[in-house]
Design a protein around this nucleic acid. Structure first.
Lengths: 355, 355
DNA sequence: CTGAAAGCGCTTACAG
DNA sequence: CTGAAAGCGCTTACAG
């Protein structure tokens, strides 16, 4: 390559890498011929000898998703700033597919891996990646068993929380960034209580860990205020599920005056469900979600929701990964706080109909 | 590595690659020791000698975007099916950043590159990638000059289209997948005409190539029906722009009865703008968009729109790239047709107020 | 069918 | 400051 221009390959390397001990003159010449030849160093060859690829493997559930899309912006930003590339895989919720992706990433010698909302269990992931590369998990959707859900509904809140804390996230093998679901959920419910609501229902979403935590936060806020839990429904986390569950909830003999939906998409569905019944939001019923995806402010009424710092989550995950690459190896979990965003889907409950 | 288990590295390679001439017995032994050692072949080393990395570079404008998010699903699907990985870069509309990403991808020896809605000009991209790797462009947002826009508004439609076709996409150097903007736009307008609309306005979006094409399609359908163009507004492609432009349009002395928005997000903004004015959609004014992003069906009223085959666009782009890798090198452009999706934001125009 | 050897394009001690 | 040499982990003719 550029060797045909005077010196040895070793000198070329040193000149281009900005090694201190090269004569400015020779560096000059090397640079000239390099650009003349349109020389592009082969980073793979470099990786082979240095052992670092400056590449991070990223596996997420899906790319069409409003929530993860924004988190990915954070991943990319931070990775690029640190000089890393991202190789992307979509798991589509399939543990098998996820496993293959991870295997492939490892064979491609990525320096580290971050997986968002893993389909597999932490134990599986750890078994796969082991100590080959630092691994950080962003959000962990562990399946909640019927018993766990049941406990979360019935047992004293503080006990359930204590036992969750004691059992850990199920893996002390890697860094973990999540959201403070308990705190966020409680903030949302407190907002409704301040507005005067007393019958607050919960569309709990799928039987996964975040749903359990949000359920716990809901109970915490209700207990604080001395209120009883309202109806609690579990289901898929889709727009359609929101529509149906809202209809069901609002057709009850004594319907709730407020609904906490599992996320914004479900909440938007719930608004539609309420409308289908001829109800007005927020006049007849207040509805809130979680996430603050872009469209939460575009719907009518604009959604009151709990915003997670999505880009920050992405950034932090990469930062923890880089720390892992620097040798830091105490596992840690960071639970990021959400922010209550009050818009137009919440209002005081309707005045009691005069009996 | 696994050499410590009997044979030579060459044999290991052959055994693991499924080379025909290895004794089943030795293959057996090799596989055993490989799995015992948890051996993972180093694909970088392999790439260094074979020259193929089974990796495709992908650069898109942003990942939080509802439209590109879905297209990426198509990219990934097809790439993984063909055994390729994707390395992802976000350009954020910055030509400089895009250039650096491409440079980096090339240094990482990707086999090919696809760039969606490039920030740089085709000429720049070609200059950068040259013949190093096959390049496919998905959608090309070339800037339209004021003169071009002006021509598209005033000159005979067929002339403008002919001259656009003659000038080509500006680059015959690569494969190119786009949308049939003229046809799609005409289909949308015909739908409105069939409903009985005669005053149809256009929120043309930013002064880019797709906007010009959609404007042309709009004129085509209007001419067919012998109708005159309505108000045409150019602006950013955001929700807020939609709100404002709809207000402006609908506050006119003789407001339009239908609005064709640049895309779904703008259309959703326009619905909001109409509501702000106390107007009912679609009772007082029909509104349509382009894209059919997920939320188009979640808003109220659900949006009538022109759906682009987003996943198919992604799939096709990768397919063309793979053909390029197989030596096929005639450049080509594929314009995918959209599909009219009629939902609830369109209806016949309001009855003429009795004078 | 299998091994020895060379080589992919870089980097890094080790000598000068 | 610079060059010769070895080596990163694989693959691929070339001999047996």
């Amino acid at each position: 390559v550029a060797r045909l221009t005077g010196v040895s390959t070793a000198t070329v390397t040193r000149a281009l890498q900005g090694h201190p001990r090269v004569l400015p003159a020779t560096r000059q010449r090397v640079e000239e011929s390099a650009s003349k030849l349109g020389y592009r160093p082969d980073r793979l060859a470099r990786t082979l000898v240095t052992g670092v690829s400056q590449t991070i493997g990223l596996v997420i559930p899906s790319s069409g998703d409003a929530f993860w899309g924004e988190v990915v912006d954070g991943f990319e930003q931070q990775a690029v700033d640190a000089g890393f590339s991202l190789v992307l895989g979509l798991a589509h919720g399939d543990p098998e597919r996820e496993r293959r992706m991870l295997e492939l990433l490892l064979e491609k010698r990525v320096d580290g891996i971050v997986v968002a909302a893993p389909a597999g269990t932490p134990r599986d992931l750890h078994g796969l990646v082991g100590t080959t590369a630092p691994l950080v998990l962003v959000t962990w959707d562990a399946t909640a068993t019927p018993e766990e859900l049941d406990r979360a509904v019935r047992d004293p809140v503080h006990e359930v929380i204590a036992s969750l804390a004691a059992s850990g996230a199920g893996g002390a093998w890697f860094a973990h960034v999540t959201t403070d679901d308990i705190g966020g959920s409680a903030a949302l419910v407190r907002h409704l209580i301040e507005l005067g609501h007393e019958r607050i229902a919960l569309l709990a979403g799928p039987a996964l860990r975040p749903a359990v935590l949000r359920l716990l936060g809901y109970r915490v806020a209700l207990e604080e205020a001395g209120l009883a839990p309202g109806a609690i429904l579990t289901s898929a986390e889709t727009f359609e599920a929101g529509v149906e569950m809202a209809r069901e909830l609002l057709s009850a003999r004594v319907p709730p005056t407020a609904i906490v939906a599992y996320n914004d998409v479900v909440a938007i569905g719930a608004i539609r469900g309420a409308r289908d019944l001829g109800l007005h939001v927020p006049g007849d019923v207040s509805i809130v979600g979680f996430d603050d995806i872009e469209f939460a402010s575009y719907v009518d009424p604009a959604l009151t929701t709990l915003r997670w710092p999505k880009r920050e989550m992405g950034r932090l995950a990469i930062e923890l990964l880089l720390q892992g690459l620097d040798g830091r190896d105490e596992p840690m979990t960071e639970a990021l706080a959400g922010e209550l965003v009050v818009r137009s889907s919440t209002a005081p409950p309707p005045a009691r109909p005069a009996t």
